[in-house]
Amino acid sequence: MDSYKDISDKKEEFYNLAIKYYYNIDKEYLDNISKIVNKSISILVDHEFIPTPCIEIRLELHHQDDDVNVSSYYLYINEENEFIDEFLY
């Protein structure tokens, strides 16, 4: 995590990476999602079970019938942009 500016400058790349990983999820679940909203990118410095430091990328998922947030997807990557973990709720 060399610099906050590096992350800020590459935020669209980070969101695109998270979307790419999200689309690897079960296709039945994806059918109900019509909109993905880029929500946040954070540096995670301490966590109980995720290796840190890492980058946490959050996407908000909206239902196809209405524009309401139904869940969120979190992708955790290291500073080399390698997958660490993901969380969907």
Results as ranks from 00 to 15, higher is better:
Tyr76Met: 10
Tyr22Ile: 06
Thr52Ala: 05
Leu30Phe: 07
Glu28Ile: 10
Asp9Leu: 02
Tyr89His: 07
Ile77Asp: 03
Val37Asp: 08
Leu17Gly: 12
Asn32Met: 10
Glu12Phe: 04
Phe83Lys: 06
Glu79Ala: 14
Ser8Arg: 06
Val45Leu: 08
Glu28Thr: 14
Pro53Ser: 00
Ile57Leu: 04
Leu75Ala: 06
Ala18Arg: 04
Val68His: 05
Asn81His: 13
Tyr22Leu: 08
Ile84His: 07
Val45His: 12
Asp9Phe: 01
Val45Arg: 10
Ile77Phe: 10
Phe14Ala: 05
Asp9Gln: 10
Asp46Val: 08
His47Ile: 07
Ser8Ile: 09
Lys10Asp: 06
Asn16Ala: 15
Asp31Met: 11
Lys27Trp: 09
Glu80Ile: 09
Asp2Tyr: 06
Leu88Glu: 11
Ala18Phe: 05
His63Arg: 09
Tyr23Phe: 15
Val37Glu: 15
Tyr74Pro: 05
Lys27Ile: 09
Asp67Arg: 03
Met1Leu: 10
Ile41Tyr: 00
Lys20Met: 03
Glu56Pro: 02
Glu82Gln: 12
Tyr73Asn: 05
Tyr21Pro: 02
Asp85Lys: 04
Asp65Met: 05
Lys35Gly: 07
Ile57Glu: 05
Glu13Gly: 01
Leu61Tyr: 04
Tyr89Ser: 12
Ile7Cys: 01
Phe87Ile: 12
Ile57Lys: 02
Asp65Pro: 03
Glu79Phe: 15
Glu82Pro: 00
Asp6Thr: 01
Asp2His: 14
Tyr29Pro: 09
Pro51Gly: 00
Tyr23Arg: 06
Val68Gln: 07
Ser71Gly: 06
Arg58Ala: 15
Glu60Ser: 14
Ile57His: 02
Asp9Arg: 03
Ser72Trp: 09
Gln64Ser: 14
Val68Ile: 15
Lys11Trp: 08
Tyr73Val: 07
Phe14Asp: 08
Glu28Phe: 08
Tyr29Gln: 08
His47Phe: 01
Leu17Cys: 10
Ser40Ala: 15
Ser8Asn: 06
Cys54His: 00
Glu48Ala: 05
Ile43Glu: 04
Tyr73His: 00
Tyr29Lys: 04
Glu28Asn: 10
Asn16Leu: 13
Lys27Pro: 15
Tyr76Phe: 14
Tyr15Trp: 06
Ser71Thr: 11
Ala18Tyr: 01
Ser34Glu: 12
Asn32Gly: 07
Ile55Trp: 00
Ile7Leu: 03
Tyr89Lys: 13
Lys35Gln: 07
Phe83Glu: 11
Gln64Ala: 08
Asp85Ile: 03
Ile33Gly: 06
Tyr76Gln: 09
Ser8Phe: 04
Leu59Pro: 04
Asn32Lys: 09
Met1Pro: 07
His47Arg: 09
Ile50Asp: 12
Asn69Pro: 01
Tyr22Gly: 01
Leu61Thr: 14
Ile36Glu: 03
Lys35His: 10
Pro51Glu: 13
Leu61Met: 12
Val70Phe: 01
Ile36Trp: 05
Leu59Ser: 00
Gln64Met: 13
Lys39Glu: 11
Lys20Asp: 13
Asp26Tyr: 08
Glu48Thr: 14
Glu28Gln: 12
Tyr76Ala: 03
Tyr4Cys: 03
Glu48Gly: 11
Lys39His: 11
Asp6Gln: 10
Glu86Asp: 15
Pro51Ser: 11
Asp66Cys: 06
Ile41Arg: 02
Asp66Trp: 02
